[in-house]
């Protein structure tokens, strides 16, 4: 589905990401974990075209997309839900969701997707007329993911979806991730919540200072002593 080869990103003199290669297969949940500043968000911004100064190759569904601009990548179905929710604050929940259906391929299915998102996230239906800025953190996150789903994703990319959420809500987010995967949409998820990600991911990569230091099936990594010491403090 998504194959990334030797992705490097440089900000001025700083090499933020160096030769990172990873893959997301059909029907998979893939995690990228690492501490703050490890290069996780940079990786996602680079594949979705938000960062122009990048090297390496990105192929999506067999097509090289590293030279495309963001809106062209989005039209191909690679949907990136950014860190910090980033809703359109002064639009209603429904307007936010409807903008998710902005890409041309998604437009004809707008109503159908809206019904789907409302059935998946009934809370959003209750709040549909409310301005996004007035939602709670968890609701905003659900709305952001819902907006991503509105774009008819062929791959959903989630950047720190649980940041700042209460533990109960974190569990809810991962439940949602699983149900998205069950509809056939692969999910690439970037997180600091290492245990949760590794527990849910079919495959995972560990980033440290811009380089991949470890990779493997989620459950395998979870049992690795080095990783447990570094990220779980045990």
């Amino acid at each position: 589905m998504l194959a990334v080869q030797n992705l490097s990103v440089r900000f001025g003199d700083v090499l933020a990401l160096e030769n990172f290669s990873f893959e997301v297969g059909a029907g998979q949940v893939v995690g990228i974990v690492g501490s703050n500043g490890a290069g996780k968000t940079t990786t996602l911004s680079a594949i979705s075209g938000l960062i122009a100064n990048r090297a390496g190759s990105v192929s999506f569904d067999g097509e090289a997309i590293e030279r495309l601009s963001t809106h062209e990548i989005v039209e191909r179905g690679l949907i990136h839900v950014p860190e910090g929710r980033r809703l359109f604050p002064f639009m209603t929940v429904q307007e936010n969701l409807e903008l998710g259906a902005y890409p041309r391929p998604a437009r004809p299915k707008r109503q159908q997707q809206l019904d789907f998102v409302f059935s998946l996230l009934p809370k959003l239906k209750e709040r549909r007329g409310q301005q996004a800025v007035t939602l709670s953190g968890g609701e905003q996150q659900m709305c952001a993911i819902g907006r991503g789903l509105m774009s008819c994703p062929r791959l959903l990319v989630l950047d720190e979806p649980t940041l700042g959420l209460a533990p109960m809500l974190v569990e809810e987010v991962f439940e949602l991730v699983r149900s998205i995967r069950d509809t056939g949409v692969p999910v690439l998820i970037v997180e600091q919540q290492v245990v949760h990600v590794l527990g849910n991911a079919d495959f995972a990569y560990v980033l440290e200072s811009g380089a991949c230091v470890m990779q493997g099936a989620g459950k395998t990594l979870l049992e690795d002593d080095g990783l447990r010491r570094a990220y779980l403090g045990v």
Binding site: G49, H71, E75, P82, F88, M91, R147
Partner: peptide, 21 residues
């Protein structure tokens, strides 16, 4: 019009919903 308003409110998110900003 919605795309224009979205761009006004958040350029980055606008790009990520496929708007040619």
């Amino acid at each position: 019009g919605a795309a224009i308003r979205a761009t006004a409110q958040d350029r980055r998110s606008a790009r990520l919903v496929g708007i040619n900003v």
